[in-house]
């Protein structure tokens, strides 16, 4: 088997918390805690989890934008640290697109100027040449060429997101982190962007990390899935296997919470309750991070951190971290909830 395009090994990211006039470090935010996963070339990995679970931090770490406290990242066989040292090497390989493209586009520059600047900074094209490339980029993302003359405020949310994608594509990266790129858009427009991303992936063999809290979208775009909670991976594996039978109580709760746009199903289906107690990243729990909200939590869940494991009868690449996932009563409850969500 060929080596994966992106590989994270035991990655942790902690942010120091400082206070006082001396800026003393009084604690740490455990934003990402010992996570590992890989993405195959030309595929999309969906990264889901609740707010504050460390999704964006993971994406930023992959871009060298958040410091690795521990672990290593390899991009296309090369170590992230080396890539960071070689100036300009990392952006040529990977790019990131954010939820709010408005905040990341310079309001005083026209769309054309923004794109042209990116090309020139990276020495990819100059002058006339660059102008032509800008036109081609706009074609690629399905925007009319005359929009190059406009400023970001004169575009709709969907159009701005296309510009942000065009800017990422300008450098012809092999890997793009997409952080909640459709979350702020109307349902009716979301599909336009998702389809565009899929077309681009097919044509250019792009690799995506697709960060979102919308499981329905993830189901459409991703080949594999990572579910995070409290900075750790709860479950990961091929999309098909996870949606067919989630192994982890949190994944199951997540699935059963997605509203289904069909009143008959939506009203009847069973749900797994999540007690509302979000994890505190300042004082991470020992044992399972999900214990406070889990219906099946027991003594061992509070003392021992469950390891990612596969389960007989499922895809061997489908892993989950739960002490009780093999027990029939748990399997029964989870599959009932999953059936409700997916029927």
């Amino acid at each position: 088997m060929n080596t994966p395009a992106i590989q994270l090994k035991n990655v942790s990211v902690r942010f120091p918390i400082r206070t006082g006039i001396l800026r003393r470090v009084v604690g740490e935010v455990h934003a990402v805690d010992d996570i590992s996963f890989e993405i195959n070339e030309g595929e999309t990995l969906g990264l889901v989890g609740e707010s504050g679970s460390g999704k964006s931090t993971t994406g930023r770490a992959l871009m060298g934008l958040a410091p690795l406290t521990a672990g290593s990242v390899a991009c296309f066989g090369r170590d992230l640290k080396q890539l960071k040292l070689a100036s300009g090497a990392l952006p040529r390989i990977s790019q990131i697109v954010f939820q709010d493209p408005y905040a990341s586009l310079n309001p005083r520059m026209t769309i054309g100027e923004t794109l042209q600047e990116v090309l020139e900074v990276h020495g990819l094209a100059k002058g006339r040449d660059a102008k032509q490339r800008v036109d081609m980029l706009l074609d690629d993302v399905g925007l009319r060429r005359d929009l190059a003359e406009r400023h970001p405020h004169a575009l709709s949310g969907g159009q701005r997101q296309r510009v942000a994608i065009a800017r990422a594509l300008a450098i012809e990266p092999k890997f793009i982190v997409l952080d909640e790129v459709v979350s702020a858009l109307d349902v009716s427009i979301q599909g336009q962007i998702v389809n565009l991303l899929q077309d681009l992936q097919r044509d250019r063999k792009l690799t995506y990390l697709f960060i979102t809290h919308d499981l329905s979208i993830v189901r459409h775009v991703s080949h594999s899935l990572v579910v995070m909670y409290g900075g750790q991976v709860m479950e990961k594996g091929p999309r098909k296997s996870i949606f067919a039978a989630p192994l982890h109580p949190y994944t199951s709760a997540l699935l059963s919470a997605v509203p289904v746009p069909d009143p008959k199903i939506e009203r009847m289906r069973p749900r797994i309750d999540v007690r509302s107690e979000p994890p505190n990243p300042l004082a991470p729990l020992t044992g399972c991070r999900f214990q406070k909200s889990c219906l099946f939590a027991s003594e061992i869940c509070r003392s021992e951190r469950p390891q990612l494991q596969s389960i007989e009868g499922h895809d061997p690449q489908h892993l989950a971290a739960c002490h009780h996932m093999r027990e029939p009563r748990v399997r029964e409850a989870l599959s009932r909830a999953a059936r409700g969500a997916l029927s």
Partner: peptide, 9 residues
């Protein structure tokens, strides 16, 4: 709408 119950991408 992207539907969670759709089975294929």
């Amino acid at each position: 709408i992207a539907r969670i119950e759709d089975d294929v991408a």
